Amino acid sequence: MSLIISWFVVPASHFGPPTGSSILVYGLLAQDMFTAPTPNGAFWSIGVEAELYLLFPLLLFVWRRWGAAVLVVCVALPVIGRGLMAAGASPVEGANWLAPNLAPVFVAGMVGAGSSLRRTECGVCPGGGSLSWPLCRSWLSASSGGRSGR
């Protein structure tokens, strides 16, 4: 729909109307790696999100293997180093390759979500009490006919 609107109603950006390369780049979610006229200015984030979701299993592996602090450092240090080594210590704005710059924010969200899940030691829940408290509470409530005993 955005493609049709930008072709026939109003152009989406100052880079001109979308072309065949726009369809290819945005269709493959590669807009963070390649430049093409955009059919919709908000589409930049979809490619970044796709890249971060592809990295998600690796980020989880690092987190579970070495901990949240190591994950945060591993993701933040390259971004900080790249920013400090940029000309005038000011990274270029509006460029592609935003996923590395937004990875620390993504990891902060992961760590924040993980820390909000309080673990229970009830021993009754499936998984040996490894479920988060809200899930365990729901399971206890459902398995006792609505009376969890707590």
Rank of each mutant, 00 (worst) to 15 (best):
Y26T: 05
M110A: 02
S45L: 09
P18Q: 09
G112V: 00
G94K: 05
E93D: 08
C122V: 03
W63R: 14
L102T: 09
G109R: 01
A36C: 06
G20K: 05
R65G: 01
V79E: 05
Y53F: 14
A95D: 08
L102S: 04
A76R: 04
V10H: 14
G146A: 04
N96R: 12
G123R: 07
P39Q: 12
C136G: 10
Y53C: 08
Y26Q: 14
L84V: 15
P57K: 06
M1Q: 08
G109D: 01
A86T: 12
E93H: 10
S2G: 15
E49K: 04
G109Y: 01
S148M: 07
S22M: 06
L77V: 15
G16N: 11
L117W: 03
P91E: 03
S13C: 08
E49H: 07
V92C: 05
A30E: 05
E51V: 15
F8I: 11
W7A: 04
A12I: 06
L58A: 15
V124H: 08
L84R: 11
P126F: 06
P11C: 10
V9K: 13
T35D: 12
F106K: 03
T19V: 07
V25W: 02
Q31N: 15
G88E: 09
V111T: 00
I46E: 02
R118W: 03
M1C: 10
A86H: 09
H14M: 12
L60M: 12
L55W: 03
T19N: 10
L59D: 00
A42W: 10
I46M: 12
L52K: 06
L29E: 04
R150T: 10
W44S: 08
S13D: 14
G94F: 07
V9M: 14
E49C: 10
M110H: 02
E49L: 15
W139K: 03
S130E: 14
G112P: 00
A142L: 13
G67N: 01
F34E: 02
V92N: 04
R147N: 13
T38A: 15
M33L: 13
L59C: 01
L55D: 00
G20Y: 08
A36H: 05
G41M: 10
L3P: 03
L102Q: 11
F8S: 07
P100W: 11
F56M: 12
S144Y: 05
G114S: 04
S148Q: 07
C122L: 07
G114N: 02
G114A: 07
I5M: 07
G146R: 03
L84W: 13
N101F: 15
P18F: 11
L24M: 12
V92F: 08
L29T: 13
S141D: 10
A108H: 00
A95I: 07
S138E: 09
W63Y: 14
S115C: 06
C136V: 04
L59G: 00
V79C: 06
L24T: 12
T19Y: 07
R64T: 03
L28E: 05
A87R: 11
W63N: 07
V124M: 08
I5E: 11
